[in-house]
Design a protein around this nucleic acid. Structure first.
Length: 875
RNA sequence: AGGCGCGUAGCUCAGGGGGAGAGCACUUGCUUGACAUGCAAGGGGUCGGCGGUUCGAAACCGCCCGCGCCUACCA
């Protein structure tokens, strides 16, 4: 039994339990069950992904919730899976092809997709395997992938239904275009980062006059596609010019001067060049004024034929330089100004996106957003912390139609066909063989695929088998909780709510817990390019999964980001080790003791037993309360304090005497020890699953695995404030002696004598009864003062609540040192007295404050005065 | 420009109307038979600033200062 190593070594133990859980099917949820359901769907990581510390936090929290509920008797399902991550995955596979010297275009669409599947087969389990190593208690048999047949059917069903209801439409609009990924992006997929740029002020001469506009632009290359200059109709400076023309520099075209309210008279010179093909606002203005659209930047980011020589074929940024040089040459560049502005970048490849006009598919979002807003308003979905609801509402109220088509190959192909003969467009659940209108068999399918987030939006119900009415759907949907970070509230959370309500009539989850972001120790976002990432697997290898999980849990306070460093994790490894050693000690003392027996006569329990049991009940209640309210750090800290500060520091020390040989009370002590340790292990299991399983197996060999053991529940009848204050006397007396020892620099190995004078009979009885324990803890021989006791010159004195402590020193310390120590103690007490005297002398306080506060303050004051009096009397 | 969050011990942070807390770091002393990844004893803070509400504010309210983040089509 007592074959534990001196130090906890996670290696081997983690593997052992991963295998055991798997063999025993511990994490399997039941599609039909008498138990209450609790379900979480995993935010599906990208198949291309590598586990990072953010996943570790996200999954630790989910695992805590799931394990906690499972131990509480729920039919707990943690639904795992991965996301096909269209653009990201396509990029990865393309890069691999590039290394072999091929391009996807060389392979053709079908073959390329085959390659992606091959790639997925080879590497797709990587992140899943990494997740398993953290101890994630997902029901792995249910693992899904967004491109699975079933999920694809859900996508198809949703797309067709939305199309039939007019909620999906196709149209030519200005969208965000990534010239590198060669696809449209939704507004959300564009990141705005402030960049240092320039404002070029360009002269646009007015035709037939000597007047000119000076127009500022951040993108001079778009000049080639200008089709008008706009001014505000109310601008007196230019009123007379409206309807005339300017000569477009370089091109030497005439373009009209138009009037539009959009133009801000205050900004710059109040004149705006209009490039309908390359700016969303200009596009709108262009439509209004029927301006021609000249596309000068192509889909590949190079200048088009319409840009004209010598620019055609040049990269857009090179073209910019050429244009600026040319303008300079011609004297048309009035001025260059530094200008910082937010440039849109592709969230996948970080290239600068190009506003581009093209034909795309959109979701008409307003009708979907309305019920989704109401669901959160009504509380059908609750955000925790609640403040995130504001962000949600803010976005949902300003939401714009969602561009869902992507010009890539990897993803759910849009189920739309066009008849080559009659031009009929068909959007269908099943692939058509011929035109539904004219019967012609020549059909072409839309080449585009859907935004990856389109399928993610269905995840909570598509993974349960929707559109079939499965048992899983009935049992686990709506899911209970969603755990994610704030940065995908728009991308994912909001869209799941919209789609869930639309297609199931119910919200996809009841609560959304938004957790922090993990940053480095400087508070910087972790990123590979900064080199400040912490690799969770490396950490697991070095400190064990439990240490990492405990650290993340302890730091996961609501509403604040986590600054993580290896030192923090190392610190919590000490806690894991502490638990290990407390268990080691306990197990050493339980040889031959049957830990499965639970019936113990409470009268046999010693004071220390009753005390630790009382403290345990309070701790259990606090931990449960914390977990029920997503206060993970609070739960971690409660267990930490109890385990280290109370169980190890006091109870184990108090109990040692009774464990020797056949000491009286040994049975009660062993019973209490195993009971409390068992409760600690079960309380901690959701946070530290591996080490708790290992120790539980040794402590309770007959009880089965801890992952399905019942989570501790508080027993009110074991809570006793009287017992707790009685122990406080023992602790105070012990600390007083230790304090004398420490302050007077007496070695711990020197046994001291101590005499206690109690201020009441009960305290005296406690001190007398607990004397053996105090003696041990303070390395002293203690006794109670009798009537003849007199303090003499050689004694150090300390006064604590209800007890005067006298320690004869026999020359171990000089009188000066003793006086110093006593004066220090007195100064502290006098500070307290002043504080309370001031407070209590305030008439208004006495009148208005609650009676109990006044009463307790008066009692405290009296106690401190008493202590000071006693202390003074001795010097 | 708007919105949100944060400012508490040297560091990282809990807390939150009634005597300032934890971990780490620091000082001193310890091979006390679970643990030196440890034990014991200590030092350390006008809780960002100024006002207000209150008998009482670190906490609630207002303003200010500093630091983050998010959203936005100002050329």
């Amino acid at each position: 039994m007592a074959d534990l190593e001196k130090q906890y070594n996670p290696e081997g133990i983690e593997e052992k339990w991963l295998a055991r859980w798997n063999e025993e099917g511990t994490f399997k949820a039941e599609d039909t069950s008498g138990k209450p359901p609790y379900s979480i769907v995993i935010p599906p990581p990208n198949v291309t992904g590598v586990l990072h510390i953010g996943h570790a936090l996200n999954h630790t929290i989910q695992d805590i919730l799931i394990r906690y509920k499972r131990m509480n008797g729920y039919n707990a399902l943690w639904m795992p899976g991965t996301d096909h991550a269209g653009i990201a995955t396509q990029n990865v596979v393309e890069r691999a092809l590039m290394e072999k010297g091929t391009k996807r275009q060389d392979l053709g669409r079908e073959e390329f997709i085959n390659r992606v599947w091959e790639w997925k087969g080879e590497y797709g389990q990587r992140i899943v395997n990494q997740l398993k190593r953290l101890g994630a208690s997902c029901d792995w048999d249910r693992e899904r992938f967004t491109m699975d047949e079933g999920l694809s059917r859900a996508v198809r069903e949703v797309f067709v239904t939305l199309y039939e209801e007019g909620l999906i439409y196709q149209g030519e609009y200005m969208i965000n275009w990534c010239p590198r990924c060669h696809t449209a992006l939704s507004d959300l997929e564009v990141e705005h980062h402030e960049k240092a740029g320039h404002l070029w002020h360009i002269r646009y001469p007015v035709d037939g006059t000597d007047r000119e506009f000076i127009i500022a632009t951040t993108r001079p290359e778009t000049l080639l596609g200008d089709t008008a200059v706009a001014v505000n109709p109310n601008d007196d400076r230019y009123k007379d010019l409206i309807g005339q023309s300017v000569i477009l520099p370089i091109k030497n075209f005439k373009i009209p001067i138009i009037a539009d309210e959009y133009v801000d008279m205050e900004f710059g010179t109040g004149a705006l060049k209009i490039t309908p093909a390359h700016d969303p606002n200009d596009f709108e203005i262009g439509k209004k004024h029927n301006l021609p659209i000249i596309k000068v930047i192509g889909d590949d980011g190079h200048m088009t034929k319409d840009a004209g020589a010598p620019y055609t074929g040049e990269d857009r940024f090179k073209a910019r330089k050429m244009i600026v040089d040319e303008l300079k040459e011609q004297g048309l560049l009035a001025n260059i100004e530094d200008h910082a502005h937010a440039v849109g970048q592709c969230y996948r490849c970080h290239n600068i996106v190009e506003p581009n006009i093209s034909k795309q598919w959109f979701v008409r979002i307003a009708p979907l957003a309305k019920p989704a807003i109401e669901a959160v308003e009504k509380g059908d979905v609750k955000f925790v912390p609640k403040s995130w609801e504001n962000l949600y509402f803010d976005w949902m109220h300003n939401i714009r139609d969602w561009c869902i088509s992507r010009q890539i190959w990897w993803g759910h192909r849009i189920p739309a066909w066009t008849c080559k003969k009659c031009g009929e467009v068909m959007v269908l659940r099943d692939d058509p063989e011929k035109c539904i209108k004219c019967g012609h068999t020549g059909l072409s399918q839309d080449p585009d695929v859907l935004d990856t987030w389109f399928s993610s939006a269905l995840w909570p119900f598509s993974t349960a088998g929707w559109p079939d009415k499965t048992d899983a759907l009935k049992t686990f949907y709506p899911t209970s909780t969603l755990v994610t970070s704030f940065d995908i509230i728009f991308f994912w959370v909001a869209r799941m709510i919209m789609m869930g309500l639309k297609f199931t009539g119910e919200v996809p989850f009841r609560e959304v817990y938004i957790h922090a972001l993990v940053r480095d120790s400087e508070g910087q976002k972790m990123s590979k390019s900064k080199g400040n990432t912490i690799d969770p697997l490396e950490i697991v290898g070095k400190f064990g999964a439990d240490s990492m999980r405990m650290t993340l849990t302890a730091l996961a306070a609501q509403g604040r980001d986590i600054k993580l460093s290896e030192e923090r994790i190392e610190g919590y490894r000490h806690f894991v080790n502490k638990l290990w050693n407390a268990s080691r000690f306990t197990l050493m003392n339980l040889e031959g003791f049957d830990t499965s027996q639970t019936n113990i006569n409470r009268d046999d329990l010693a004071l220390a037993d009753k005390w630790i049991l009382s403290r345990l009940q309070k701790t259990i209640a606090n931990v449960r309360e914390a977990l029920d309210n997503y206060k993970f750090n609070e739960a971690a800290s409660q267990i930490y304090q109890f385990t280290w500060g109370e169980f190890c520091d006091w109870y184990l020390e108090l109990v040692k005497l009774r464990l020797k040989g056949d000491e009286e009370g040994g049975t009660a002590a062993r019973h209490t020890l195993s009971h409390v340790l068992g409760a600690i292990l079960r309380m901690l299991h959701p946070v530290m699953p591996f080490v708790t399983e290992e120790l539980w197996e040794k402590l309770m060999p007959k009880a089965g695995i801890i992952a399905i053991a019942p989570y501790p529940a508080p027993d009110e009848s074991l809570i006793s404030d009287n017992i707790e204050s009685e122990i406080a006397v023992v602790m105070d007396a012990t600390v007083a002696i230790r304090n004398i020892r420490g302050e007077l620099s007496i070695k711990p190995s020197t046994e001291l004598n101590a005499i206690f004078r109690a201020s009441n009979a009960q305290t005296g009885t406690t001190l007398k009864r607990q004397a053996p324990f105090i003696n041990r803890l303070a390395n002293a021989k203690t006794k109670l003062a009798d009537e003849s006791f007199k303090k003499d010159d050689d004694m150090a004195v300390s006064v604590v609540a209800g007890v005067e402590v006298f320690v004869p020193l026999g020359g171990l310390a000089g009188s000066d040192e003793r006086r110093q120590k006593a004066e220090k103690e007195l100064a502290k007490i006098e500070k307290e007295i002043k504080f309370f005297e001031k407070k209590l002398s305030n008439k208004k306080f006495v009148e208005k404050a609650p009676a109990e506060v006044v009463k307790s303050d008066r009692a405290k004051l009296a106690e401190f005065i008493e202590q000071a009096k006693k202390l003074k009397a001795h010097f």
